[in-house]
C-alpha cells in the first residue's frame, strides 16, 4: 500500500485548503478579468491575475501531493462547463431584463408561436413514433443482411447537416414516387404548417427508430420467449409483454423526439420558407426576427426554447428512461 495515502485528518484538511485556494484563485482571476473589461487594466489587474494563478497553482500542488489532482481536474471540468452554461443563458436573460421580459412574455404573438411549435412537434412526434416502433422492433429483434449499412442509412439523416437535408428535400418531393403520393394526398408543403410537420417528421424518424431500438434492446428477450411458449402469438406478445416492459424507454424516447422536432430550424429555412403564422415555429421565428433586428423577440423566444429544452430533459430524467442511441 505504498501509493495510497490514508484518508486521515491531514488529507481532509488538505482538501479543504485546496478547495479554498482554488476558489480564491478563481475569484481573483474573475476580478482581474472584470477590471480589464471595465477598462481599468494595468498593474492592479495584472497583480490580481498573478495572485489568482498563484493560488490556483498552490491548490494544484497540494492536490497532487495528496494524489487527488485527477479527480479535481474532472470535477473542475464539470463545474467549468456548468458555469459557462449558466453565463451563456444568464447573459441572455440579463440582456432582456425584467421590464422587457414582462412585455414580451405578455404578447400574444409569442404565445401563438409557442403554440404552433407545440402542436406541430406533437403531430410529427406521433407520426415518427408510429413508424419508429416497428422499425425499432425490427432493428432490435430481427436479422438483416448488411446490418451496419442499414444502420448507417437510417442514421444518416440525423448526422447530415440539417441544412443539407432541407436542400435535398426539394428533389425528394419533386421526383415521382413521393411526388405522386403527396399529390394524391393533396398536401401543400411549401409555406404551410403541413410542410413544417413533414420536415420535422423527416428529421426525427431516424431518431425515433434508434431510440425505440434502444428501448426494446433493454427488454430481456426471455420474457418474450416465455410468453410465446405459453402460446401467445407474436403480436400479442409484443403488445402485452414487450411494449409494457419497454414503456419507460418508449415514453422517454417520445419526449426526446418531441424536443428534437421542436428544435428543428435549418431544414425548414431551406425547404419550407418563412410565412407568418404558418411556418414560424420558435427556432425559425428566432432567425426571422433576428433578420429584422428585433432582438427583444429573439431573446425572449430563445429563453422559451431553453426552458422547453430543460423541461423536456427534466421530464425525461423523472421518467428515468436512460436509453442508448447506438
Amino acid at each position: 500500500m505504498k501509493n495510497a495515502p490514508d484518508p486521515s485528518l491531514p488529507r481532509r484538511r488538505a482538501k479543504t485548503w485546496a478547495i479554498g485556494l482554488a476558489g480564491t484563485g478563481f475569484v481573483l482571476l474573475l476580478l482581474a478579468a472584470l477590471r480589464v473589461a471595465a477598462g481599468e487594466g494595468g498593474v492592479g489587474a495584472t497583480r490580481l491575475a498573478v495572485l489568482g494563478v498563484g493560488s490556483g497553482a498552490g491548490a494544484a500542488v497540494l492536490l497532487y501531493r495528496q494524489h487527488m489532482l485527477w479527480p479535481a481536474i474532472c470535477v473542475s471540468a464539470t463545474l467549468g462547463i456548468l458555469a459557462t452554461y449558466l453565463v451563456f443563458v444568464g447573459s441572455t436573460a440579463v440582456y432582456l431584463g425584467w421590464s422587457d421580459a414582462a412585455y414580451f412574455f405578455g404578447q400574444e404573438r409569442l404565445w401563438a408561436r409557442v403554440w404552433l411549435t407545440v402542436w406541430t412537434a406533437t403531430i410529427s412526434t406521433g407520426l415518427s413514433v408510429i413508424l419508429g416502433i416497428p422499425v425499432g422492433y425490427a432493428l432490435s429483434r430481427l436479422r438483416f443482411p448488411v446490418p451496419r449499412l442499414i444502420a448507417t442509412l437510417i442514421d444518416l439523416p440525423v448526422m447530415v447537416p440539417a441544412a443539407a437535408i432541407g436542400a435535398l428535400l426539394f428533389g425528394f418531393v419533386r421526383t415521382p414516387p413521393v411526388r405522386n403520393v403527396l399529390d394524391a394526398m393533396g398536401l401543400e408543403l411549401a409555406h404551410s404548417a403541413t410542410g413544417v410537420i413533414f420536415v420535422q417528421f423527416v428529421v426525427t424518424i431516424a431518431f425515433a427508430a434508434r431510440l425505440m431500438k434502444a428501448s426494446f434492446d433493454a427488454v430481456n428477450p426471455r420474457f418474450e420467449q416465455v410468453s410465446r411458449s405459453l402460446g401467445a402469438s407474436l403480436p400479442a406478445t409484443f403488445l402485452h409483454v414487450t411494449l409494457p416492459l419497454a414503456k419507460r424507454g418508449v415514453m422517454a424516447s417520445l419526449i426526446v423526439v418531441w424536443a428534437r422536432a421542436a428544435a428543428e430550424w435549418e431544414a425548414l429555412m431551406l425547404f419550407v420558407g418563412g410565412t407568418e403564422k404558418q411556418t414560424d415555429v420558435l427556432p425559425f421565428a428566432i432567425y426571422l426576427d433576428w433578420n429584422g433586428g428585433m432582438m427583444g423577440w429573439c431573446v425572449s423566444m430563445s429563453l422559451v426554447c431553453v426552458l422547453l429544452a430543460v423541461a423536456t430533459m427534466g421530464a425525461m430524467r423523472l421518467i428515468g428512461g436512460r436509453s442508448y442511441v447506438w
Binding site: L96, S99, M295
Partner: peptide, 8 residues
C-alpha cells in the same frame, strides 16, 4: 420606444 430591447 415601448421596450428596452428592440421589438416590434
Amino acid at each position: 420606444g415601448k421596450t428596452r430591447r428592440s421589438g416590434t
